[in-house]
Design a protein around this nucleic acid. Structure first.
Lengths: 137, 137
DNA sequence: TTTACAAATCGTAATCATTACGGTATTATA
DNA sequence: TATAATACCGTAATGATTACGATTTGTAAA
């Protein structure tokens, strides 16, 4: 998902494309990794002083519902990033900068075989650590 | 990890084995799956009316540090279960009853190869859904 | 078995992320 | 440009978790 696809999606669904909505998309497009609501608020404050929590969280939820953003929970805080739409994969997540690296390994085919009578609704596979750019040594 | 191992560990480390601590262990031993702090408080209330949040959370953290419990974050709430100490594996987690099923599949060997310059500190692989016992059909 | 003291607990307040809401402003489009 | 639906603001409420001074309790030495 990118900026233009997201804006088209908003328009097609009848949502208004406000300046704040565009700026939120730009923020995540440039982030290239996971960011929190707090990160976003801090970023938006420079342009929109006193922006409301309501606006931020409402739009994060909207984008999540529309499949513009994907989310994960780390350290008791929700993190968001632009949704990867091209093919199924997982992520290494850098705990310092939040940037992600695609991992094209998924063991679900094998796992599904072993859970014959289970109703599988989803799965999560994430690798945590420090990316090369953030290593101080 | 089981009740007796946990109590021995507490004693060896110089922690006191109070009635509440034992009851918390019993609760998780019988749970056979993930439970929240709220679940635990509700259970303890029947024996210890007005038990303090401090007591509950302090002991959950202690048990987590000592490797008696393991934890995961679901729906914005921390969930705890007795730690599996025998060998490395992952879990299917039933969203209705919290019970888990061991999954002896872990793709980390392959993943490690693909993250040569990355400092890997941990990973999470969980499968979510409904277990056979909770399926209403 | 008392005593002494560190550890554990209580009762409650504070914190942090998130959600909710009534009133106002803005956007899309007719 | 008028209109109505949508978005936003300012702020209060919620829910999980953390924190803290005062009090109680286990443990082990005397």
């Amino acid at each position: 998902m990118n900026m233009n696809e997201a804006i088209d999606l908003l328009k097609n669904k009848g949502y208004k494309t406000t300046g704040k909505r565009k700026d939120i998309l730009t923020f995540f497009e440039q982030a290239d990794g996971y960011r929190t609501a707090k990160d976003l608020i801090q970023h938006l404050e420079s342009t929109y002083e006193g922006i409301s929590f309501d606006t931020v969280y409402r739009n994060l939820h909207l984008y999540n519902e529309l499949g513009i953003l994907e989310t994960t929970e780390l350290n008791g805080e929700k993190h968001f990033r632009m949704k990867c739409t091209h093919h199924h994969h997982h992520h290494f997540i850098c705990k310092d900068c939040g940037k992600t690296k695609e991992i094209d390994v998924c063991p679900m085919e094998e796992v599904t075989k072993r859970l014959a009578n289970y109703d599988i609704e989803g799965h999560k596979f994430e690798i945590y650590g420090v990316c090369p750019a953030c290593q101080t040594v």
